[in-house]
């Protein structure tokens, strides 16, 4: 597999060697658990007791923290500004700031939502850091994902970097025939996008035709299930763990809908 869009860090830890479907099941289960229980400390506990140790065992702790903060910090700031200052439900007012009021309920709501998002984002980052996208798709396909969907996902992840390469080539070609790249203000910059985007999109879309002919000649889309080139290792223990996490997630949804945790 050529360069793909990825955060994957190669490694040989226990977390890396897990079947990707198991990790995906963990992402789903931990996200559902975070959203399902109505306690402020609960998502924080999930993050500190499950996700952070996972990142440490996998040896990706530094990158994990940086990426999680990169995704999460803007949400955190905006959530507290938004719900801290303009929480719409009635509540205990702590502070008056002109037309805006800081309410306890608003801060609690912002905190709960932020911690839940933290668990969701961190679970995904952990999956991305320890799983190669190609392996993930092979494993999903062996678990029963239709090959067409697997193709679309892995092809997209490879096309995005090739878009960038193509955009660079087009830019250089346009410069060679005298396009001014640096001069001008915002309007000129927008106008310069046209000679870049035009060839980029038209070229990509005309490639579709060649690609589909090549794929059909290799029996893509036949109803027979193809055999796998790389077999992703799996174990009975992991299979059991997946079913357990799935059952747990369903249980959380049922209990939550019945209002047990609220």
């Amino acid at each position: 597999m050529s360069t793909t869009l990825q955060f994957y860090r190669a490694g040989d830890s226990w977390v890396h060697r897990l079947n990707p479907v198991t990790k995906l099941a963990f992402v789903a289960a931990v996200t559902i658990a975070a959203f399902g229980v109505e306690r402020l400390w609960w998502p924080a506990a999930l993050f500190l007791l499950l996700e952070v140790p996972g990142a440490v065992i996998a040896g990706v702790a530094g990158r994990f923290v940086r990426m999680v903060l990169g995704f999460f910090a803007p949400f955190l700031v905006i959530l507290f500004l938004l719900q801290g200052l303009t929480y719409p439900e009635p509540g205990t007012v702590l502070l008056h700031l002109g037309p805006l009021e800081v309410k306890t309920e608003g801060l609690v709501f912002a905190g709960t939502t932020a911690l839940r998002l933290l668990v969701m984002v961190a679970a995904f980052v952990l999956l991305l850091l320890t799983t190669h996208p190609g392996t993930l798709m092979s494993a999903m396909q062996q678990a029963g994902l239709p090959p067409k969907i697997a193709y679309v996902v892995s092809a997209t992840l490879q096309i995005i970097p090739s878009f960038q390469a193509r955009a660079n080539a087009i830019m250089q070609a346009q410069q060679a025939r005298g396009l001014e790249v640096r001069a001008g203000g915002a309007a000129a910059r927008v106008r310069r996008l046209l000679p870049l985007m035009g060839p980029l999109l038209l070229g990509a879309l005309t490639d579709v035709e060649n690609r589909s002919i090549a794929m059909e000649s290799r029996a893509f889309g036949r109803p027979v299930r193809p055999t796998a080139y790389t077999v992703v290792p799996d174990s009975a223990a992991q299979r059991a763990a997946r079913w357990a996490m799935l059952a747990l997630a369903v249980l959380v949804i049922v209990l939550n809908t019945l209002g047990v945790f609220s």
Binding site: A204, L205, V208, M215
Partner: peptide
């Protein structure tokens, strides 16, 4: 996706890449 012709399946990654970029 189950009955999608191949010409459409190959269009999807391009379209999704346009979305994401």
């Amino acid at each position: 996706m189950s009955r999608m012709p191949t010409s459409t399946v190959t269009l999807l990654p391009i379209a999704i890449a346009i979305n994401i970029v």
